[in-house]
Amino acid sequence: MEGIMALRTGHVGINVTDLDRSRRFYVELFGLEVLGESTEDGRRFAFLGNPDVRSDVFLDRLAITLWEQSSGTFSTGTPGLHHLAFHVESVTEVEAVRDRVQNLGVEMLHGGEIVPHSSDFDSGGFFFVDPDGVRLEVCAPAGVPTDRAVTEAAPSCGFFPPSAD
């Protein structure tokens, strides 16, 4: 379409049930920093940013916003977010994040295996859930053996084991 600028993903907003718990989870796991927050009753939120981004522009640094305005757990059976993926440069980095996830005692999907996106592509990663059940992925662009595909040619990031639903 003429006149439309190229889009890129900005920050991701996530509804949470317990802001303190979720802030700790994302800060501890990914090394994000709190750029701003509100603890005002009924208006609790946290802006989390990437400390490696060197910019004076707030939106350049903003990665995740957490909004304490929900109850229950993330629904994998209704329309909406399927999962949230974070990209790193290598399988070694995927392994390092997976080690942190294991140390936090977080539920991992596909048995915590680093799986290729399909039997046709050696990109891939591992899958786990945040404190409210949001499915997360950390993946690398290459280097994952394709013989570990969990869904053959279909993308493993699109199909989760029954226990995740």
Rank of each mutant, 00 (worst) to 15 (best):
F159G: 12
L136Y: 07
L19Y: 02
E40M: 13
G72L: 09
F30C: 11
T65M: 13
P145H: 05
L29M: 13
T73P: 01
E89T: 11
G77E: 13
P145D: 08
G125D: 05
V101R: 00
G36T: 12
S119T: 07
G112C: 10
E137Q: 14
A96H: 09
F121W: 05
G10E: 10
S71M: 09
Q69V: 08
I4S: 14
V34Y: 09
D18S: 11
T76P: 06
L19D: 02
T76W: 05
I64Q: 00
S70M: 13
P155H: 11
T73E: 11
D41Q: 15
E68L: 06
R23K: 15
G80L: 05
F25G: 01
A153E: 14
F126N: 04
P51F: 04
L29F: 07
S22F: 00
V53W: 08
F128C: 10
F74V: 01
R8W: 10
S70Y: 03
T17E: 02
F126P: 01
L19M: 04
H117V: 12
I14A: 03
G80A: 05
L7G: 14
F160C: 03
F121D: 00
R54S: 12
G143C: 10
C157L: 08
C139A: 14
S71T: 15
V138R: 03
L59G: 06
A6Q: 12
A96R: 14
H82D: 13
C139L: 14
L29R: 02
Q102A: 15
L48Q: 08
R21E: 11
R24S: 13
R23W: 00
D20N: 10
V138M: 08
S38G: 08
T17M: 05
D18P: 00
G112V: 03
V115H: 01
H11P: 07
E68Q: 15
V101G: 02
E37H: 13
F126V: 09
F74C: 01
G133L: 06
P145G: 04
L84F: 15
H11C: 12
L29S: 08
T39Q: 13
E107W: 07
A85I: 01
P161S: 10
